[in-house]
Computed example of a mutant assay.
Amino acid sequence: MKTRSEELQVFVTVIDCGSISAAAEQLAQTPSALSRTLSRLESRLGVTLLNRTTRRMELTEEGRFFLERARLILAQMHDLEEHLALHRQQPAGRLRVNAAAPFMLHAIVPWIGEFRRAYPGIELELNTDDLIIDLLEQRTDVAIRIGELADSSLHARSLGCSPLLALASPDYLARHGTPTTVEALEGHCLLGFSQPESLNHWPLRHAEGDRWRIRPQVLASSGETLRQLALAGEGIACLSHFMTHHDIRAGRLQVLLAEANSGYRQPIHAVYYRNTQLALRIQCFLDFIQHKLAAYAC
């Protein structure tokens, strides 16, 4: 009997998810059904692909060989479907997008309804991570990264850039006063990032340069957490315009020390592995988001 594409997908998903139960949840099937599929696949091939126990599973040598080729076959099938869709000018297929939570919430989620109406054939999977992920390991088509890019094998497309602004709520300023110089920030509660530490170098000009290194009284790993703290009047934060422009417009946050701002803009890039022509579904998504970013990027 011939191996079926559904069996290849089950096998690859089990490996990527790390367990049959996790793969079953992703594929909306039962663990027992996936276990039977794997056994049927191994029976057809006449080899053992996975050594499985109740606690762990490990690829055999034949399994590693088969996994590499299964990925290639599934990718080729996906490309074929996309080329057919391109012929019809209807991008289709699943698109897995990863971004930091603030960017996802403020620059992608508000436009998803419009995007889906424009491209009903694209199935979106939106994931958030505040740390840099491995695209292959997380089965991600495209990731949005904010800030300077490190050298890597990834291909990148610039989507624009966004100013960094020192901000505080009117309530905080009413209670603690408004700093009129960069040096005056030392007398305030400053909200900073636990990582990367470079985000605690605010783009503010002073006597010794155009970056002011703060000593945060409150640290957080996510810009969205810092935004919520600033809105609650807990201190002063330096955040990107793409996530705060509505707050500034509504008066919930106030820009501070605008005359001292060095004008630095955070670069925004989409990164992906493909080194040939971008898949149509990815191209459509990036074109769409780049257009929307123009409203609050430079």
Score class of each variant (00 low, 15 high):
I15C: 08
K2T: 14
V109M: 13
Q228E: 11
R69I: 12
S262Q: 05
G235M: 07
A297E: 05
I108C: 05
L8Y: 07
G93A: 04
E125W: 01
E61Y: 13
H87L: 13
L190C: 06
L185I: 05
F65R: 15
R116N: 12
Q90M: 10
S221I: 11
A258N: 06
G223W: 01
L256W: 08
C17M: 15
R56L: 09
D151K: 12
R215H: 13
N200A: 05
C298H: 13
L45M: 10
S39K: 14
L253F: 07
L293K: 05
L257R: 03
L74H: 06
I73E: 10
R274H: 11
L95W: 03
A184P: 00
S198E: 13
E62D: 10
I146S: 11
Q90W: 00
D171C: 06
E6G: 00
V218K: 05
I289R: 03
G233P: 02
E234A: 14
H78T: 09
R274K: 08
W212K: 04
S32A: 13
T37Y: 10
I214G: 03
A174T: 09
R69G: 00
L38K: 04
P267V: 09
I108E: 04
L173F: 08
L105C: 02
E25S: 13
G18S: 04
S39H: 11
L204H: 02
V182I: 10
L84S: 09
P267Q: 07
S240N: 15
F193A: 10
R56S: 13
Q138K: 12
R249H: 12
T3C: 07
Q254L: 14
V97A: 06
R265D: 03
D16I: 04
A260R: 08
R4D: 07
S152C: 06
S35G: 08
A23Q: 07
A28M: 10
F242M: 01
A237N: 03
E7D: 11
R145M: 08
L286Q: 03
H106Y: 07
P102F: 05
